[in-house]
Design a protein around this nucleic acid. Structure first.
Lengths: 108, 108
DNA sequence: CAGAATCCCAAGTGATACTG
DNA sequence: CAGTATCACTTGGGATTCTG
């Protein structure tokens, strides 16, 4: 069982901390959730959908998500430029887990 | 599916945000993890196990976890006083989910 | 259009000392 | 022993403006 690390502390090597680093923060899960539900989305559309995100935060979150392999960025060389974001396959496998987590939190 | 909220944004009512409020933060998952693995644990023992927590943070986290029904506090009227923390039954059901989440993050 | 740069604020975290 | 109080600090998040 992955949660078990002898006597704890899991500390730095804890898979859960790693997970939190990937999808923690105020907006990352919403971003993934939106991309999952709505499919590939342009930057400004995403910004409108996630009502209240600032550019700073959204851009940073997207870059981190991309670096971590959760999101793919595709740039279409049109004028004006068009950029779409979508979730990756490994990220797809995260969705059902998040789903369980959400259900659990609501039943609590 | 709980993750689906029409077009998103899940925003405030998002079950995932609720979950994050419960178990987010730097130490809460470690606390739950430790209590799960080691069983009922006294305050100072917990503090030693989670190497690096300050009193401020640990005490606050434990109080919140207790308010949210994830942790039970039991006070034994001995001299000196003894206080033990343990995870609750609803919290037990969270463990396998965290386990999946941890596994996912490591396989990524 | 898609972001980067800048600046600011609030919240979270932490170290230390102290007390019922 | 199990915390609380106080204060300092770091980080994340946000508003706004600007540019390739």
């Amino acid at each position: 069982m992955a949660v078990n690390h002898d006597n704890c502390p899991c500390m730095d090597s804890c898979p859960l901390n790693h997970a939190l680093a990937l999808i923690g923060g105020k907006w990352k899960m919403q971003i993934l959730c939106s991309l999952y539900n709505n499919g590939p989305t342009r930057y400004n559309q995403l910004k409108k959908t996630l009502d209240g995100v600032s550019n700073t935060v959204l851009a940073n979150a997207l870059r981190e998500l991309e670096e971590d392999g959760l999101v793919e960025r595709q740039e279409y060389l049109e004028v004006p430029v068009r950029v779409e974001y979508r979730i990756t396959e490994p990220c797809q496998r995260l969705i059902p887990i998040l789903d369980e987590l959400g259900n659990w939190s609501m039943e609590l």
